[in-house]
Structure formats: structure tokens, C-alpha cells
């Protein structure tokens, strides 16, 4: 199992929360956006006709993941899209972490797509990114 995520039932009464994990920072960065994408819409119902390249650097992987997830929310509103998938690489360059990603999706289509919840923002409530043994782990609460 390179990466996975699961939604949490017992925190964030009015909102949504998930845990994501991966074999590496990069795998964690693949797992967490899948939870956000699925909160918005079923990715299988969304075509890949819209594309955006995203590059970000931060000193801390926790800050980088927060910014990466927040960017997904931004493009959802700014371009009126939901998402099919994201390809990415994450690497450490000296004292900083660098994300290069391609986010793919399509304009919202209420007939063709299975839409779920609008996400208003990624929050820092109970926000955690940490390494546990060989695996990287994140807990994220999403404001819907």
C-alpha cells in the first residue's frame, strides 16, 4: 500500500475530516488530495479537460501540504471546476520542500458529474502532518 486515506466520523461535527498516509512524503501528497477531490465529486465522473500546473515550495512539509490542498479549493472556485486526478512529485531541496503538480479536471456539470460537497477551505483545526516509522501521516479537517 503506497498511500491511502479514510474519512473520520468522530471529529468535526458540522464539517468533514480525513486521515491520509503514505510510504513517503510524496505518497502522502498523493493520498491527501484524493480525499479532497472525493469530497467535491466522484473523480471517476469527472473528465480531464481542464489542467493546471502548480509549483510550490515551503520549508515544512506540513505547510506545503496545507498550501497544496488550499490550492485545489482555490481552483475549484476560481475556474468553476471539479477534479479527475493530480500527478505530482515532491522533493527536498536543501532546507525546502518543492511540489510540482498537474491538477486535472473539468468544468462543473451537474448532469454528467456526481457532485458531493462544496469545500470552503482547509483548516488547521487538529491539523497534523507527521512521520510514524517509515510512513507519513496527515489529519485534515475540511470546512464544508
Amino acid at each position: 500500500m503506497a498511500h491511502s486515506f479514510r474519512f473520520l466520523d468522530d471529529i468535526a461535527l458540522a464539517d468533514l475530516a480525513f486521515e491520509a498516509e503514505g510510504d513517503s512524503v510524496e505518497e502522502l501528497f498523493r493520498a491527501a488530495p484524493r480525499a479532497v477531490l472525493e469530497t467535491l465529486a466522484d473523480p471517476a465522473s469527472v473528465a480531464a479537460t481542464w489542467e493546471r500546473r502548480i509549483t510550490k515550495t515551503e520549508a515544512d512539509p506540513a505547510d506545503l501540504l496545507f498550501e497544496w490542498l488550499s490550492d485545489i479549493v482555490y481552483w475549484k472556485d476560481a475556474d468553476g471546476v471539479v477534479f479527475h486526478d493530480a500527478e505530482l512529485s515532491v522533493r527536498q531541496e536543501g532546507s525546502t520542500w518543492r511540489l510540482e503538480a498537474v491538477l486535472r479536471g473539468a468544468s462543473v456539470d451537474q448532469i454528467a458529474q456526481t457532485l458531493h460537497n462544496d469545500v470552503k477551505g482547509i483548516t488547521k483545526h487538529l491539523y497534523v502532518v507527521k512521520q510514524e516509522g517509515p510512513r507519513w501521516f496527515a489529519r485534515v479537517v475540511v470546512d464544508v
Binding site: A78, N117, K120, V144
Partner: peptide, 18 residues
């Protein structure tokens, strides 16, 4: 600008959730 980018197309929309 980020906030404007998110809001400029949303006037007159309900949103979701509650």
C-alpha cells in the same frame, strides 16, 4: 487577489452544506 479570484464568479449562488 486570491480572495477576489474565488469570489468574482460566485455572486448570486447558494453554495452547499447547510
Amino acid at each position: 487577489d486570491h480572495a477576489v479570484g474565488r469570489g468574482i464568479n460566485q455572486l448570486g449562488t447558494l453554495g452547499s452544506g447547510n
